[in-house]
Simulated assay, not measured.
Amino acid sequence: MELKVENLIKSFEEKRVIKGADYSFEKGKIYGLLGRNGAGKTTLFNCISSEMDFDSGKIYMTDEENSESMNYEKIGYVYSTPILPEFLTGYEFIRFFTDINKKKIKNIKTPEEYADMVCFDRSDLDKLIKGYSHGMKNKMQMLATVIASPEVILLDEPLTSLDVVAAHEMKEMLMNMKKDHIIIFSTHILQLAKDLCDEIVLLHGGKLAGVADEVYHSADFE
């Protein structure tokens, strides 16, 4: 399976942000999408996930027989700012999410077992999401994506709000998941991408290009 972006163009009024971007993302790999702040990484994710219309170009998926299709239910998007029902407890949210997605989940686990998967403290499950820290909300949002297990996972700056231990645990989880998915995460931190990714993709000047990481220095993206 591949996710293909072809000649993608996206403008905001007079400003063209994505300028004919092309790239193919393969199943079984983690991609680091690098670019300076404001380069258009979130805009690209919004176009891929159908959160935002684009001006022209094409985004589609191919299977082993090379047939083309696009099913947005196969795309999971973890936002940089978590969007969660804050009036629910963590426990209630996990129960609700598994219930509405039960047809897609092969082996439903308990909320406690799911919490363990992202190293979420079980004692926090009974607290309202409203009172969670940004890092806790990020973990809960990531957990929802893990539960749904979409074929394509988009992660917008996923580790920046986590402490060192939690970030390491999240990296391990992504490594274990990658064989069955296309995982793309955006960051402006080169070292983070080098530590985790199979390929580094640079978004610069509105276009996408695979890069040899030794050519770049982390200062280029600060």
Rank of each mutant, 00 (worst) to 15 (best):
Y91L: 00
K15T: 01
E172A: 00
E157Y: 09
V118E: 08
G131W: 03
S11M: 11
T89Q: 07
S149W: 09
N176Q: 11
T110C: 07
L34A: 06
E26A: 09
F25M: 10
S50F: 14
M173E: 04
V164N: 12
C119K: 13
L159H: 09
D195N: 07
G135N: 10
I94N: 10
I18A: 02
E64P: 05
D53V: 15
K109G: 09
E214M: 14
L203E: 01
Q191D: 11
S50Y: 14
Q141P: 08
D63P: 07
I75D: 13
N37F: 04
V118G: 03
I30P: 01
L33G: 00
E214N: 13
P158A: 02
A39Q: 12
I147R: 01
H188L: 05
L190D: 08
S24T: 13
A115S: 07
S218V: 07
A166H: 10
A39G: 03
E199V: 00
L203D: 06
E73L: 06
D220A: 07
G32F: 11
P111D: 06
L34G: 03
M170W: 02
G32N: 06
M70N: 13
Y114N: 01
Y60P: 04
E73F: 10
L8D: 11
E113D: 10
L159C: 05
A219K: 14
S11I: 13
A219E: 15
I182M: 00
K15Q: 08
C197F: 01
N176F: 00
K58H: 10
P85G: 01
D53I: 15
I9K: 09
I83M: 13
T187F: 05
L162N: 03
H188Y: 09
L44Q: 13
P85N: 09
L203G: 02
L88C: 10
K19G: 11
D53S: 15
S186A: 14
G20R: 03
E169P: 12
G32W: 08
D195W: 05
L203N: 04
C197E: 07
L3D: 00
K102W: 09
T160I: 14
F221I: 09
P85W: 13
S149G: 07
I75W: 13
L33F: 04
K4F: 12
A148K: 00
D213S: 15
K106T: 11
A148S: 12
E68F: 11
F25A: 09
I100M: 13
D220G: 11
T43C: 11
N46S: 12
L159Y: 11
V164H: 05
E51R: 15
